[in-house]
Write a protein that binds this DNA or RNA. Sequence first.
DNA 1: TTGACAAAATGAACAGTGTTCAGTAATTTT
DNA 2: AAAATTACTGAACACTGTTCATTTTGTCAA
Lengths: 204, 204
Amino acid sequence: MGIKQRKDREREEKKDLILDAAKRISIEEGFEKVSIRKIAEEIEYSPGTIYLYFKNRDEILFELHNIAFQKFYKEQLKISHITEPFEKLREHGRVYIKFGLDNPDLYELMFIVQAPGNEIESSQSWNEGMKTFDFLRSNVQECLDAGYFKGSDANTLSIAMWSLVHGIVSLYLRKRMAMVPKDFIKPVMFGAYETMIDNLNQKK
Amino acid sequence: MGIKQRKDREREEKKDLILDAAKRISIEEGFEKVSIRKIAEEIEYSPGTIYLYFKNRDEILFELHNIAFQKFYKEQLKISHITEPFEKLREHGRVYIKFGLDNPDLYELMFIVQAPGNEIESSQSWNEGMKTFDFLRSNVQECLDAGYFKGSDANTLSIAMWSLVHGIVSLYLRKRMAMVPKDFIKPVMFGAYETMIDNLNQKK
DNA sequence: TTGACAAAATGAACAGTGTTCAGTAATTTT
DNA sequence: AAAATTACTGAACACTGTTCATTTTGTCAA
């Protein structure tokens, strides 16, 4: 009974075909331009067919969001060589902000756009997000073990650190930095991060 | 020659008519539902007419964003009675987060939605945003004068503080907190802020 | 009051969007 | 070969923002 297997495989292949098309459109024209009709045209099927493989557009954007997370996760690992926990955390934030500013489209999908959020909520499991968060938390835990952030707990502190860097990137991406002259915005964003982390750098 | 004056006044009245309709729709159905056709129907004019008073939908959302800012600004003033600078700053953040969680629609318009951002960028002046930012900066400056955050500058530090609270609110609103059980998300968000501010509370 | 001009408003048209579903085509099973 | 199942289609629904030729309304001088 290899027929079921083949069918399953063919189904997965078609899903990949759809996702690959979505990815291409996303890269070439931005993810906002990823429409059902455009994907359908790209893969030479009718729009209705796509709904046989994905329940709606949000689910497709959620998959793109996962792909973006994988790229980010790899980027994040570049801090692994740093041994001093606080310096590692500091660099972690820098890498995060740099990724956001360098890959606005991927960042939007991962953390700003509504669609994947709805999927995250309904699926009740967020593997890619969790993996990334765990990596941050382990870094924060190392800091706690080394005597930084006395009296804090790793989970809460990780969320706080994440909020800080996310706030920086998303205010920038959504153009809410009009009080800073245009040419200075990027350095100011990094500067804000450094100021904050410097103020946190003390073994109480 | 009072005719020009009357015309100008009538023009402003019509703009207000449009904005009031937009506001009503926004309050009743959420700002995403504010469409040109819906506004037109509400005020009993044709869709084309709206373009005689606003250059596009973004400009209307930008005006709604300004109205939201005014409400937020008032809310913010509630911290004015606090004399100790750091405690005032701490409460400022709390008020900010509370406003975001209690008024998701207004918050989205102020800080997350793309449309007003485009307007902010093109108009090169952001009165409402600046006013709010200046209020934060003066609070931060008081902290610096009192010996907190040694070695930091008010501008940069204000952006950092703002990023922190914005990060908290926007991760929550865009449902990127799936690692926290649903019922705990809100308290965890406030907890993350308290942890961060506690770690910053030390006169170096 | 009438004719001329300008200003204001219209609404159809353009070019899209996500999603559904009755009907057709292809494949597999009996 | 016929029946049953699965895959796919594409028209239809209900929307969206925006433009622009055309019509309506308002103003003003003759």
